[in-house]
């Protein structure tokens, strides 16, 4: 099976879906001539032309709204944000327009569109450029939110998002674009709303999503050497959430760690813990432990940044804690 980068996987998905359906177009800052701020859209302008690969001014609220309007009358926009930090300027269009249009029109106006771009912390980008927005967006009925962690998931989920007739938010990992992984040549789609068991074990579950699934897998591999067998449930989609996958895993392992990139209060993990207590109360052998960013804006200094982020060490410690090993 070919091994390609996360970036190339996204590029393939865009190219294939734009070739398949001429209502699909890509719009955002630097997506055309510059080939994408992260080079995700490399070569697409050449292939599809200016009407379908549209460079915008720095006008997030404006072009997110253009996407909404175009979707209302039958096109299938993909709106790229240079990063999700900048999408805050467009949050009115995402939350008040895209997510509400179908409902408040009594079913008359579906919104077949994708909002996508890099999310989460990279390295030393500090407070305004290092934020994970999963829980913000997952809070909103009328949206779907996907968070691929691997090249395989990135391609399959982006294709699903583009074909979906609802507004789909895709949070890509800003640190993941160069990561490599196997991606089959033949076409595939990953259904939105389905988690994947990325490691199998019966001692403890780590429930996580997106970029953090990579950390969880590493933790599982390392813990395996100590004889601790961990289930890694990568939610992949955080809205709707695959409650069944969470429950199945925790009923098997009786212990859970919830790992996320964002902050603690009202985080994705809080919702997972709620599902766990509802679905698995009688199966639990220990309180659930959460791992997340500490409750501060992201600092710049290296050591402080490391201390702020959830990571491998904190994840391993959490598993040991929930197993009463420390």
């Amino acid at each position: 099976m070919p091994v390609i980068t996360y970036r190339e996987a996204l590029n393939q998905a865009l190219r294939e879906e734009m070739a398949r359906d001429d209502r699909v177009f890509l719009m955002g800052e630097e997506v055309g001539v510059y080939n994408g701020a992260y080079k995700v859209s490399k070569g697409l302008l050449e292939e599809f032309g200016e009407m379908r690969v549209v460079d915008t001014p720095i006008t997030e609220l404006g072009f997110a709204g253009v996407g909404v309007g175009a979707a209302m009358v039958g096109l299938r926009p993909i709106i790229e944000f240079m990063t999700w930090n900048f999408a805050l300027l467009a949050i009115d269009q995402i939350v008040n327009a895209a997510a509400k249009m179908l409902y408040m029109s009594g079913g008359q106006y579906p919104m077949p569109m994708v909002f996508r771009g890099p999310n989460g912390a990279a390295l030393q980008l500090s407070a305004q450029h290092s934020q994970a927005f999963e829980s913000w967006l997952a809070h909103i009925p009328g949206l779907k939110v996907v968070t691929p962690g691997t090249p395989y998931d990135a391609k399959g989920l982006l294709k699903a998002a583009i074909r979906d007739d609802n507004p789909v938010i895709m949070l890509e990992g800003e640190m993941l674009y160069n990561n490599k992984g196997e991606v089959p040549e033949e076409e595939y789609i990953i259904p939105i709303g389905k988690a994947e068991l990325k490691r199998e074990g019966d001692h403890c579950s780590i429930i996580t999503n997106g970029k953090m699934a990579l950390v969880a897998m590493k933790a599982a591999d390392q813990l395996a050497q100590e004889g601790i067998r961990v289930d890694v449930v990568d939610l992949r989609t955080v809205r709707p959430m695959d409650v069944e996958a969470i429950a199945t895993s925790v009923r098997k392992t009786n212990r859970a760690v919830v790992l996320e990139e964002g902050w603690e209060l009202a985080g994705i993990g809080a919702q997972v813990v709620d599902y766990v207590q509802r679905e698995c109360f009688d199966h639990l052998d220990a309180p659930v432990v959460r791992v997340h960013q500490v409750d501060v804006p992201m600092p710049y200094a290296k050591a402080l940044e490391k201390a702020a982020k959830p990571d491998l060490g904190k994840t391993i410690a959490a598993v040991k804690k929930v197993m009463y090993l420390e």
Partner: peptide
């Protein structure tokens, strides 16, 4: 295409409809 409740919010949406017409 609707009455919209956020002052100013529907104006970019109108530009999007114009974009789709041109497209």
């Amino acid at each position: 295409l609707g009455g919209h409740g956020i002052v100013g919010g529907h104006v970019p949406v109108a530009a999007g409809v114009g974009f789709a017409i041109k497209y």
